[in-house]
C-alpha cells in the first residue's frame, strides 16, 4: 500500500529553483534514505512532505490527503512525525512535558494517559530516568532520542528524519541510529535524509540520490552503493566513502 506519493514536486525561493521535478512513491513500512551533496534540495524535499515548506507545483498525497489542495494540514501533520537536525526540544518544558504537550493540547489523551505513554516512549528510547530533567541537562544524543520520542507521541505512521545525527558528537551517533533501527524493524514508514552511509546501507529498503533539485538515481542500497550508474552518484560516493 502506498503511504506517500509525490508527483512533479517543484519548489523555489524567489528565482532559485531548489526542487525541479520530483516523483516518488513510498510504500507502507518502507524505509527510504535520501543522500546527496549539500544544496541538492534533500532537506527542502523532506520539509515539503509535511508542508513546513510550501510547494510551488506538483502534488503530494499522504494517505488520502492531497497536500496541494486546501486541507487541514494540522490533521495531516499529526500523522507525520518529524525529527530535526537541531533537536528543537522546547527548553522551557521538562522532558515529560515535551513529549506530552501535543497529545494533551490536541486532546488525543488526558494528562494522565499522556504521562503514562510518555514514560513508555522514554523507556523505549532508553531515557526513563530523565523524565523530569530539562533539555539543557541532556547530551546531544539524549536530546535527539527525546525528540524521536516526542515525534512518536502522536502515534504517527510516517516518520521524517532531517539529518538526525549531523549535529551530534561522533560517540553519540550510534545511540540515535539504534533507536531509528528499532523503529524501522517495527515497521515504521520512514524517510531519512542522512549522511550516515552505513545506516543507509544497513537499514534502508531504498536509497535515493539527489543532486541539483532532481532525484538522479534510486534503488536498493546494494544497487546504489555497490553499482551506481549515474556519474554524479559515482562522483559523490567516491568523495565520501
Amino acid at each position: 500500500m502506498v503511504k506517500l506519493k509525490v508527483t512533479n514536486l517543484k519548489k523555489n525561493y524567489g528565482d532559485l529553483q531548489v526542487l525541479k521535478d520530483i516523483d516518488l512513491e513510498v510504500k507502507e513500512g518502507e524505509v527510504v534514505c535520501v543522500i546527496g551533496p549539500s544544496g541538492s534540495g534533500k532537506s527542502t524535499f523532506l520539509r515539503c512532505l509535511n508542508q513546513l515548506e510550501e510547494m510551488n507545483g506538483g502534488t503530494i498525497i499522504v494517505d488520502d490527503h492531497d497536500l496541494s489542495k486546501k486541507i487541514n494540514i494540522n490533521k495531516v501533520r499529526e500523522n507525520i512525525g518529524m525529527v530535526f537536525q537541531n533537536f528543537n526540544l522546547f527548553p522551557h518544558l521538562s522532558i515529560l512535558q515535551n513529549i506530552a504537550l501535543a497529545p494533551v493540547q490536541l486532546k488525543k489523551q488526558t494528562k494522565a494517559e499522556a504521562k503514562e505513554s510518555a514514560l513508555k516512549l522514554l523507556d523505549r528510547v532508553g531515557l526513563s530516568d530523565k523524565a523530569n530533567s530539562y533539555p539543557d541537562q541532556l547530551s546531544g544524543g539524549q536530546k535527539q532520542r527525546v525528540a524521536i520520542a516526542r515525534a512518536l507521541a502522536m502515534n504517527p505512521d510516517i516518520m521524517l528524519f532531517d539529518e538526525p545525527t549531523s549535529a551530534l558528537d561522533p560517540e553519540m551517533v550510534g545511540e540515535v541510529l539504534n533507536v531509528m533501527k528499532s523503529l524501522a524493524k517495527d515497521g515504521m514508514t520512514m524517510v531519512v535524509v542522512t549522511h550516515e552511509m552505513g545506516f543507509a546501507r544497513e537499514v534502508s529498503d531504498r536509497v535515493i540520490f539527489m543532486d541539483g533539485g532532481y532525484i538522479v538515481e534510486q534503488g536498493s542500497p546494494d544497487e546504489v552503493f555497490s553499482h551506481p550508474k549515474n556519474p554524479r552518484t559515482i562522483d559523490f560516493l567516491n568523495k565520501i566513502l
Partner: peptide, 10 residues
C-alpha cells in the same frame, strides 16, 4: 521551535 511545534500538528 515553531517548526517543531507545527510538525506535531499543533
Amino acid at each position: 521551535q515553531m517548526e517543531a511545534a507545527r510538525s506535531l500538528g499543533l
